[in-house]
Design a protein around this nucleic acid. Structure first.
Lengths: 196, 196, 196, 196
DNA sequence: CATGAATGAGCTTTCATTCAT
DNA sequence: AATGAATGAAAGCTCATTCAT
């Protein structure tokens, strides 16, 4: 059943996180999934071919988490803070998986699948910006779609820089988050409102 | 001689770019470098251990190229445009190498070397912001160091999104660049000046 | 139904011819036969176990073709020419199948089934020789049975040498055939009659 | 060294003979050759790629043996007897190897290498026929080259039929040999001389 | 009788690493 | 320092075979 495919994906996430991509063997994945070696090949052609499925799961988790976090954020200021909060939190928690997602997708021909994987995420963010525009909170001349993409890229790169690439940056996470929020609000044309 | 080490790095860039990281074998690298199999191990302990050296070369190229491009940029507006221009151009030209750099570093324990590799790049950008502050062109309350990091992350993620992850995004590169410039200037607190 | 068995045999001929014995998988055969993987085992115990059935089909085709070709051959001279003609023609057309028959049978314990598969063929040839003897056309001291076997072996080996093993021998087929006919007639003790 | 290649070929002959082609694993071959698994692939790309080398060895052995056997055969009659004797003897002794040679070569793309492998054998036989012609022992109108090929094919097919394909034919080997000799001499146009 | 998803033993093949030269 | 033939551990992958449906 498709049950099997899902079990492979979840096991792969688990294993990649535990041992890294290079050191994870297909035999590890199938062991974790509780299926036979050959069964793996009925669903995926190689270890890296699992990556898009993993990314899908991760981005979905990310978006769910952000939606939850921003449930009570009524103004753009709070919204942005909540988003940054969620992204930083998840990047820290799953830093290894995010790293391997970038690695896995980048290392392969699957790279251009990114966009479709992020589609929902981008769309949601664009909708938030639309709402903010209607509320007169941000610059109405911004292109919501494109700005959404830039915002997400900005926040993710900051989170990655903090948790993935910086040996000691994690202590400064709070400052970093504040910086990103300010930077983002400025870019959205509502710096003043953000001064508290 | 150190000549040999350099030849290994250049050959590795070439091979990784041609065949991807996974499929590049040490035998390919040494063949390209014109040295013997065993010699590789006198300089690097593994395939991925070459990554930091590759990244160094690439970031250096990137910074050199940006410096050249921004030579005549006298105000923050032009400066930002020039930087975006340079980053987009290089990302497009060397998109495969950048992808593999992220992949290669992310896949390994070398990830935290990123920061030191980017150090000069960050420093240069911070200096530019200082200059802009002194000229009264941007918000003086910004932390130059941190803002530099965010700016670079923002621009790179936009370029990557355009050239690496988006199957057809390349046609919209000009629009994308303009968006990033506006976004960045807004974040720096000088949106109005950027209106042409 | 036995329909299924036949479809397996025909599909196996097709597949072996297309991809060779080694590279033909049971999955290929069943795909070609339009039946399920498991069904194969209801009729044959393995890939090579299909060989005798294939050989039967092929030798039957061969004998039918020879009979047709020799229908109007009234003297030993014409008969021999017609046989050589038919064997060469079929070997050329089905060279790949003959090769794989030898291979398939030789590679297994089924090798000694050859003889029973060839039985009708040998018998028919022996009868022809008997007729020729009665007509005083060939040496009456020959053992028809044994000579039949030798003749068939001779002609087949010549045809194989021409079409299977010789990269460029095919251009010389006409000469070859003439050589074989002369050789055979000589062996049968009727060289002079064959001079035209 | 080339020593290694030779050891692989000899071990392959040994193993194929013992266990058959299908059941012989590359690990068996390398074990027999006393080399490492990987070393095999420095010399041959697959199990079947060894076949031409095996065939070379076998045909060489065959020719050597025939030469030895025919050393004292002064007339065509004795010569033919000696050749048949040698071919039958070797086919019986090495029946399994001959079977696998046909199987192995036939099963692959190496089939057309047969001709070059047999070249020396054909040449030697043609020379013998030339000598017989000069001695007036056989029909001078025969094409030595082509007749040599037919003769070898005839004798081999008879020997194979006797030892490879016939379950109980081995008891009749002596008769078979006599039949072949008579058949061959007849074909060469010297039946009368052969009547003893 | 027929199916075909699942199996997993065991093969082929790779390729990083070594070390005598 | 440099070599590259040889290694062999270990991985990928196949595919004949089974068996619940």
């Amino acid at each position: 059943m498709d049950n099997k495919k899902e079990r492979i994906v979840l096991s792969a996430i688990e294993m990649f996180r535990e041992k890294g991509i290079e050191k994870t063997k297909i035999s590890d994945i199938v062991k974790g999934a509780g299926i036979a070696q050959g069964t793996f090949y009925l669903y995926f052609s190689s270890k890296l071919a699992v990556m898009p499925s993993i990314a899908e799961v991760m981005v979905e988790r990310m978006l769910d988490s952000i939606k939850e976090e921003t449930e009570n954020a009524k103004d753009i200021n709070k919204l942005m803070r909540s988003i940054v909060e969620a992204v930083f939190r998840l990047t820290e928690a799953d830093r290894d998986i995010f790293a391997l997602m970038y690695a896995g997708l980048a290392a392969t021909e699957y790279m251009t699948e990114w966009e479709s994987i992020y589609a929902d995420y981008y769309k949601w963010m664009a909708q938030q910006l639309e709402v903010a525009k209607e509320a007169g909170a941000i610059d109405v001349s911004l292109d919501s779609e494109e700005t959404a993409i830039l915002l997400i890229g900005l926040i993710e790169s900051a989170a990655e820089q903090t948790f993935l690439y910086s040996p000691k940056g994690q202590g400064k996470a709070e400052e970093k988050k504040e910086q990103v929020v300010q930077f983002a609000l400025g870019a959205l044309g509502c710096r003043n409102t953000s001064n508290i």
